[in-house]
């Protein structure tokens, strides 16, 4: 069994249109590094200067990784990882 990674519409160009792909690794960081091998370019959309992007949400088994150790959050076979772009905006400038 692998880790199921659910891909949002905006990142499906990197996965050949697939809504979900398989991943592996012991942490979210490792998972993203392995995704990058299969789906070049995707890492840049998830990370910025080695940190998770402010407006991309990553959930491991329904928990936002911001609350579970960030990119160091452990993952294992059978887990489900969901990636969702934040729905955000507004009149303010600077983002």
């Amino acid at each position: 069994m692998a880790i199921e990674v659910r891909i949002p519409t905006i990142l499906r160009p990197y996965t050949g249109g697939e809504r979900a792909v398989e991943g592996s690794g012991a942490t979210v960081t490792e998972l993203i590094d392995k995704l990058e091998v299969e789906h070049p370019g995707i890492k840049e959309r998830l990370l910025e200067n080695g940190e998770a992007r402010r407006f991309v949400n990553i959930y491991v088994n329904d928990e936002d990784i911001r609350f579970t150790g960030g990119l160091d959050t452990a993952v294992a076979d059978g887990d489900t990882v969901v990636i969702l772009p934040a729905v955000a905006g507004g009149a303010v400038s600077g983002f």
Binding site: P8, I10, F55, P85, G89, G90, A91, V92, S93
Partner: peptide
């Protein structure tokens, strides 16, 4: 549809709205 309001500016996407728009469809 993804909707939101501007409360003191016009109903036109700001630079922030454009940068953060994540649903191309």
């Amino acid at each position: 549809v993804v909707y939101h309001s501007h409360t003191s500016t016009e109903a036109y996407p700001s630079r922030t709205d454009i940068n953060l728009a994540g649903e191309p469809g």
